[in-house]
Design a protein around this nucleic acid. Sequence first.
DNA 1: ATAATAATTGAAAATGATTTTCATTAAGGA
DNA 2: TCCTTAATGAAAATCATTTTCAATTATTAT
Lengths: 141, 141
Amino acid sequence: MITPSETWLEQLHDNGYRITAARRAVVDTVFGSTHALTPSEVFDTARKKYRALGLVTVYRTLEKLEELHLIQRVHQPLGCQAFISAGHGHQHLLLCQQCGQVEFFEGDDLDALTKSIARKTGYQIQEHWLQLFGLCANCHS
Amino acid sequence: MITPSETWLEQLHDNGYRITAARRAVVDTVFGSTHALTPSEVFDTARKKYRALGLVTVYRTLEKLEELHLIQRVHQPLGCQAFISAGHGHQHLLLCQQCGQVEFFEGDDLDALTKSIARKTGYQIQEHWLQLFGLCANCHS
DNA sequence: ATAATAATTGAAAATGATTTTCATTAAGGA
DNA sequence: TCCTTAATGAAAATCATTTTCAATTATTAT
Ligand SMILES: [Mn+2]
Ligand SMILES: [Mn+2]
Ligand SMILES: [Zn+2]
Ligand SMILES: [Zn+2]
């Protein structure tokens, strides 16, 4: 674990947010998950750690974690409500279509492509979304 | 216009769907739009062409057009409910962050990248999503 | 052209996800 | 420990989408 979930709590604290049992439960659930989780899935899991948790608090906590760039929304063919720990620096996602596992990768070089497209279209290209889908080592073979 | 909107109606017909005034209005609205449109936006525009149109029919027609691959959903930072005419063959989207104009481009070559990622991660990569964001010629300059 | 049929329609109701409201609780600095 | 104020969960409200259903209409068979 490169970033202990404690760091997320510290970050919340450093940004003026309080550390509560509800937030601990949500943070502990989302941090370290290898699958993107919807608010409802976070709720189900986090409630096992903190029974009194409310779904509303899950929404509110995810909102703050996203605002601090600690988590990011994952767009998938079947829905775009799930979240995962954010990558560090410029990274992209690789998703297993079978089991839903999420990995990050980096090292894509789209400079030649974006320059070529910019020239052809007249666009000033600012950013890109790239995502790979496939089968993880466990799911194929 | 490479594909007249008549073709969309023909396609609907060829797939056993009937041609109705409501569907004409939706098809005429979505076909040829240079911006991705939400169901509600389609409704507002299409209703000008066919006053009796119901929002439900917009949802149902978009569903069929997507099923026939005539339109495709557009994922954006602010939402993923909008649709645009589908590209032909293997193409990706280029979106203007200012005015929302959508263009297609092709010719990306991700083979080297996907092979490298496959080797490093053990994934069997099946497909990719790539989208560029920027400012169109009108919006910058 | 007419009639028969089955798909399509729009309104209304139902559903599901997310947001807002609000009285109560509790974090954390003084 | 006390005080202030952020945070909480329940309930209600909102918003997007889907389902239901009786009426309408496109298409096929006559
Ligand atoms: Mn990149
Ligand atoms: Mn491609
Ligand atoms: Zn897998
Ligand atoms: Zn523009």
